[in-house]
Each structure stands twice: as structure tokens, then as C-alpha cells.
């Protein structure tokens, strides 16, 4: 699995189209094959619905998904709202897990892929 991370609007989906020849699908649609994007929003929805984040992520890691795209959301002021704080922490932890399991991690900045792993 390739893990593609970066700020919003940083060109991650275009990067995947160009480098993997895959059309990324929204993770909110629930089809975890090929390439998916907005994985952070999938985590957020799980949290809002009281789902088991760890179990869901592990299930996806065990599948044959090729590319996971997610947004970096942890580089701002710590929010005053409790849920927003938990959301950022949880997404950060999930990203660490994805990075650990990925065969490669690429951070996209201004549309340019910077290989981190």
C-alpha cells in the first residue's frame, strides 16, 4: 500500500493519477479498492457515528488496497472544541499506523511528491 499525505488542495489526487494511473475514489463511498482519498473524513465519520476506528483501519490494512490519500490536518492551532481535538489526535495516530504499514509514504507539496519512506 502507498500512503499519500499532504495539506488540502496540494495536488495529491493528480499525483496519484499521474504516478499510479488510478482514479481515486472518496473513502466516504466505502469502496476500499484501488485508490481512495479523504481518508481523514472517513475517520471523522467513524468517530461521529461511534464506530471502532482501530478495527476499521486494520480491516482496510488487511485488504489489497493500493493507495490511501489523506489530508494533513494537525498543523494548526489546537481547537477549543473537545471533539475537534480528539479528531486531530485520532487522525494523526491513524496516519502513523498507515505510514508504518505502507511500503512507501509520499508527502505532496505544491503538487510535487516528496518521498518520506
Amino acid at each position: 500500500m502507498y500512503f499519500i499525505i499532504g495539506g488540502r488542495c496540494s495536488g495529491k489526487r493528480d499525483y496519484v493519477r499521474k504516478n499510479f494511473g488510478l482514479e481515486p475514489k472518496s473513502a466516504l463511498e466505502g469502496d476500499f479498492s484501488g485508490a481512495i482519498y479523504d481518508f481523514h473524513l472517513y475517520i471523522r465519520r467513524l468517530m461521529e457515528n461511534g464506530g471502532d476506528v482501530e478495527a476499521c483501519v486494520n480491516k482496510i490494512l488487511d485488504s489489497d488496497i493500493r493507495v490511501i490519500i489523506s489530508d494533513e490536518i494537525g498543523c494548526g492551532i489546537v481547537p477549543a472544541d473537545e471533539f475537534e481535538r480528539r479528531y486531530r489526535d485520532c487522525v494523526g495516530q491513524v496516519h502513523q499506523l498507515l505510514a508504518e504499514h505502507a511500503e512507501s509514504v509520499v508527502r505532496v507539496v505544491c503538487g510535487i511528491g516528496v518521498r518520506l519512506k
Binding site: C9, S10, E84, C110
Partner: peptide
């Protein structure tokens, strides 16, 4: 301006998208 996880009002959202597009 892309990594804070916040959702803003319409103009700021449009600005972030515009900046992302310009950078790329």
C-alpha cells in the same frame, strides 16, 4: 495554508482552494 484541518466560511474556503491551485 493547507494543513490546519479547519473548515472556514465560503470566502476563506475559496481562497484556500485558489491558493492550492496556484501553488500546483
Amino acid at each position: 495554508v493547507f494543513e490546519d484541518g479547519n473548515i472556514y466560511d465560503g470566502d476563506t474556503e475559496r481562497y484556500i482552494e485558489f491558493m492550492g491551485m496556484l501553488n500546483c
